[in-house]
Design a protein around this nucleic acid. Structure first.
Lengths: 227, 227
DNA sequence: TTAATGCCTTGACTTTCGTCACACCTCGGC
DNA sequence: GCCGAGGTGTGACGAAAGTCAAGGCATTAA
């Protein structure tokens, strides 16, 4: 149980709770493990739980009739998902898939809503997080509407940099680069175009790629060139 | 003051407050008038207020360096905007312009945050509203990523129908159709393409247009054909 | 009334990018 | 070590849609 406490303490959403309160939260939820590729949440189903990622990564996707998919977000440890259905009672609007082995902490609907009512600080964190997601979504809409393929791929690379990149005097190193197909689904373009754009960026000296590690040589310059 | 009460009572965000509480809210805010085309909020500025629309319409836009714009949302009476900057303290992420004469009720940052802390019901409404906006944004991202021009324009028409359309046995009438340029900025396409698509939909018998009133002949069929 | 402005329509041309096809490379399992 | 699967690189081609250009219609301004 003390292990759960340490985990919960580092989840931004619960940052304002003290240990006694966190103990209560720990008791409300339970853990579940998923293998790479497992579906955690299925679109159109009714939502019954909020998920907080303990370890691993997940992608949130929407799929059309022909099976093409868009990746709406990628979440890693400490982040949560599944709150929307709980908040408005509507069906899940997207599917969530584990992109690596993952362990999740889940809280059921009823308990989560009680939590919100009991601890306004949690509601406020939640508001802040939703706001941030909305900002990201708006930026994404802008990119998809106004940028060409190069700009959209650059945008994805910069998002990855902001999210998981290691900054080091102007350079940014992104390890564990997603598959090109996934980057394409984030950028709203095709796999081939992602490949071509990445090579184009390399030729121009903006980035370097070794294995699945990508380095942006000059973050500011790259950003300015494409955003 | 009683007039303000009647207005506030019909704002969904304050639906759970009783009259005494609404009186307090009324005292916290003030009204301001804007002419068509006036800028209400400017991107990059710091946000100092939340706006609730009393009468009129506004569009929320983001613009790129070359002056091309994306319309992120269109809001009408009873709806609010400007909350994001207040919640996370970051600069405004979009510009808001009056698309008609408009009167707004505004509450300053401090007062609004106090309101949230004092009335959790308001925070909950706000969570529900942000959730809905996030769902819409996700749907928009899906449409921009996966649909061709026809599908994206159809999507905009359906959004307008859901928003301001009058349903009548299968048909939906949308009056006060936005300019084609604005529809293009919502659909992430060009003005000319919007024109062409609308004519294409008319030829196929999906819709009819007279002046700036558009009629969808069979809502379900139209939706099925393009979404 | 005429001029001017703003919005929509339509055609022609051009560019971008998605699709298809296929080669190549790496890695894990047998 | 070999095979197969999954992932990536690259050329050729065509379709979709952006851009440019010109004209029309309607409302407002002079």
């Amino acid at each position: 149980m003390t292990e759960e406490l340490i985990f919960l303490r580092n989840v931004p959403m619960f940052a304002d709770l003290d240990d006694t309160e966190l103990e209560k939260v720990a008791k409300l939820g339970s853990r579940k493990k998923y293998k790479k590729g497992n579906i955690i949440v299925l679109e159109k189903e009714m939502g019954a739980a909020l998920f907080v990622i303990v370890t691993g990564k997940v992608k949130v996707v929407r799929t059309d009739e022909e099976g093409r998919e868009v990746i709406l977000s990628i979440f890693g440890s400490g982040e949560f998902f599944g709150e929307m259905s709980l908040l408005d009672g509507l069906a899940r609007s997207a599917t969530v898939v584990a992109t690596s082995k993952a362990e999740l902490f889940m809280i059921h609907r009823r308990e989560f809503l009680d939590l919100l009512a009991e601890y306004p600080a949690v509601a406020i964190s939640l508001l802040a997080e939703l706001t941030m997601r909305l900002r990201k979504a708006d930026a994404q809409i802008k990119s998809l509407s106004l940028k060409d393929a190069a700009g959209r791929v650059a945008n994805v690379i910069l998002l990855l940099a902001d999210d998981v990149g290691v900054f080091k005097k102007g350079k940014v190193v992104v390890e564990d680069l997603p598959l090109q197909q996934d980057m394409a689904n984030m950028a709203g373009t095709s796999r081939e175009t992602v490949s071509r754009m990445i090579h184009q960026f390399m030729e121009k000296g903006h980035i370097g790629v070794e294995g699945n590690t990508l380095t942006i040589n000059n973050y500011e310059e790259f950003r300015k060139a494409f955003l």
